[in-house]
Design a protein around this nucleic acid. Structure first.
Lengths: 341, 341
DNA sequence: GTGAAAGCGCTAACAC
DNA sequence: GTGTTAGCGCTTTCAC
């Protein structure tokens, strides 16, 4: 049991707890010899400070919270990597919370942050979230909040996003340029502002190309692959089926491929496909997938850095930082132009 | 600022802090009316207890740590999901730490756990880890540790693993049954016990089938995809190249496909492939990949459940729980038997 | 049924 | 340079 406390060190060395505490923190008030003695004994007795005692006293927890919809998605995995890398660097601890896209959970989780458990919050909201009081309350309680990827537009806080509108526009435009005339847009949530933006980019690109927007081709998918397979299969088995698909979420990729395969619709000859995803495996799919790749690691890292900026200075005004990191359209085989015909 | 404390509630209600504390915790010593008054005010003032004050006093943090090599891997993502689901259920918080396969980091991280920051630890060790003093010390400090997937054999603690030896045996056997005679085994770490077991299964399957073990076909890969591509390409461009590959790590999948493609080696006609991976996309690869699928979510969940068992009873003897959850060989096209010749 | 008092381990003013 | 004191917010005896 490494129950060594400052008190024990103090007694052992015939010093006061205060002096030991100061020595441990390398205070200039303490003589070199004392410091050395203290450090030596601390080492010997394997002293590890109790973080909560110190948190209580200093009103700083040295920990941040990361609130995510889920983690089984290449985007969020990479984002966590980015976040964790800077947190570790700064000596901070990171608590992770998954909302599983439930607003109720998100609310309950955020509510706890009004206490001193964390010094700041990084959040990508659930797709059920269309109110933001829970977040505003946390901010009002004095904790900096940084949104990344999925933001709440009506909250004044730092926001790290990617250029959803533009990249979707580009993706759609790419399909048009490669011969698509009937492009479907697949999404999974009505609430998310990132979805609004992606859909806007899609629609704008169609308009700019003189193509009509067909509401039947804008289809709302759901949570599980099996259900989505059916939805997509239904879309594609029509005589008047789309000749291009944009999937604005990674998890739609598998059902799209499966549905095309099932219907013997050759990609890219009969139908072209683009997904928003960071899956490395995109390049070994059959055929290799054209993707909109988000700067996931970068976004996580940036979000964390902005949060630490707010944590380090008490200058909360910096919170309105809005950083947009561009996504990249990576062109592979699923959008290859028909050569012959 | 939601700085409401018990003290404030007490003053407001003309009660003692002790009574308020008890009321909040629904103690039977407190009258119904008092409880109601307290709860009502707490609600009104948006009281959120300071977790660290309570941790300090109760010597319980209600948080656990999850230490992982990385998170950008389908296995670990799914495992986190499993862990988080039970933690949230139990009202626990989860701190996440990534070692990035560095022993030094793992050591530093574990060292902090001797303090009261966490009540217990879930760990999958880094591939550099071949000493376990840092873990033993944490256990000695009174914190339960549960290993999952990557364990330290010489530490007495609960271990949740999958049947690495058997599943590797099966995978190899499957290749042999489908006509492979020269099977390569690709791995990324010399230290990991799971690798030893997988390699053992591979070797045993070869021996049992009367095949010779060719050390040139047991190849150590590295961290990045580009490097691995070269390594695998070199392996496969030999005249005496393997006719089957087992990749014991997810991230080797992409370079294998790329190398085969580059060398125009048709899968499965010229070479058959099996990977240890939980990637959903395995079934839409070109061609769909035969995989050893680990029960990632289950393992995470089970590990967490075992940890909570230890946390709830003080019966630490339960710690020697060793649970093996079987993996599954999912047969797809990359191991399809040659029909014609 | 309620309250006073002590203390978890640490830090920060302020003496000396 | 070192020690004394007080207190962060909460829980827990033990009185009353």
């Amino acid at each position: 049991m490494s129950n060594t406390t400052i008190k024990i060190l103090a007694k052992e060395l015939n010093l006061s707890v205060a002096s030991v505490s100061k020595a441990l923190r390398d205070s200039h008030e303490i003589s070199k010899e004392t410091k050395e003695k203290v450090l030596a004994l601390a080492q010997k007795l394997n002293y590890v400070p109790n973080p909560y005692a110190s948190s209580l006293r200093k009103r700083k927890s040295k920990t941040i919270a990361v609130v995510l919809p889920e983690v089984a998605d290449s985007f969020f995995s990479l984002a966590i990597n980015g976040i964790e890398s800077v947190a570790q660097d700064k000596g901070y601890h990171v608590l992770i919370y998954l909302t599983h896209e439930s607003f109720a959970r998100e609310e309950a989780i955020l509510n706890e942050f009004k206490s001193g458990r964390v010094d700041g919050i990084l959040i990508s909201v659930s797709d059920e979230t269309n109110t933001s009081d829970h977040i505003k309350q946390v901010i009002a309680s004095g904790k900096p909040v940084v949104f990344f990827d999925r933001v709440c537009d009506d909250v004044e806080a730092a926001k790290i996003t990617t250029d959803d509108m533009e990249s979707s526009y580009q993706a759609t435009h790419h399909l048009v340029m490669n011969g698509c005339r009937k492009i479907a847009y697949l999404y999974t949530s009505k609430n998310l502002s990132i979805n609004d933006k992606r859909m806007e980019g899609y629609k704008k690109a169609l308009s700019d190309s003189g193509l009509k927007i067909n509401e039947d081709f804008i289809v709302l998918c759901e949570g599980n692959t099996a259900g989505n397979f059916e939805i997509i299969r239904n879309l594609l088995k029509n005589k008047n089926r789309p000749d291009g698909i944009i999937a604005c979420v990674e998890k739609l990729t598998t059902p799209i491929y499966l549905a095309c395969h099932d219907l013997k619709l050759a990609i890219p000859d009969k139908i072209k496909v683009i997904s928003f995803t960071n899956l490395q495996a995109a390049l070994i799919l059959s055929p290799p997938l054209t993707t909109v790749t988000q700067p996931a690691f970068e976004m996580g890292k940036t979000a964390a850095m902005v949060l630490f900026k707010a944590l380090e200075k008490n200058n909360y005004n910096l919170k309105k930082e809005t950083i947009v990191i561009p996504s990249q359209l990576t062109i592979r085989s699923t959008t290859k132009k028909d050569l012959g015909v």
